[in-house]
């Protein structure tokens, strides 16, 4: 019996965001946008979904006069990512 893949992570953009954030202490919105080559609107929606699930924390603030959105992966996000990779290995082995 296959382990169920986390539907929240099993999407190209959300998985890319989590992979980028995994090795980072924090990253701003523009950095993630550049790395994932996503559109601002789509990325914003996907970040909200990940934040609602508690996988990432999103902090909105200002740097000078410019708005700045900083994202960090949470311990729950790291755990979910690890479980997802374990499930993937299971699929590939079989």
């Amino acid at each position: 019996m296959f382990k169920k893949l986390d539907p929240l992570l099993h999407s190209e953009l959300r998985l890319a965001v989590m992979s980028v954030l995994l090795g980072l202490k924090e990253a701003d919105f523009n950095y993630i946008k550049e790395q994932t080559q996503a559109t601002a609107g789509n990325l914003s929606v996907q970040l909200d979904k990940l934040a609602q699930a508690g996988y990432i924390s999103v902090e909105k603030g200002f740097e000078g006069k410019r708005p700045k959105t900083t994202c960090r992966i949470t311990p729950a996000g790291i755990q979910a990512f690890e479980n997802y990779v374990e499930s993937l290995k299971d699929y590939i082995k079989r």
């Binding site: 893949l5 099993h10 999407s11 190209e12 953009l13 959300r14 998985l15 890319a16 992979s19 980028v20 995994l22 090795g23 980072l24 790395q35 994932t36 080559q37 996503a38 789509n42 996907q46 997802y84 990779v85 993937l88 699929y91 590939i92």
Partner: peptide, 26 residues
Amino acid sequence: MENNELSPEKSLQLISDMISKSRAEL
């Protein structure tokens, strides 16, 4: 990049690519 569904192989490839990219940035 869109929010498409992925095959397990493509998922692992994507994870590996994104991590390599971050390391190259560093």
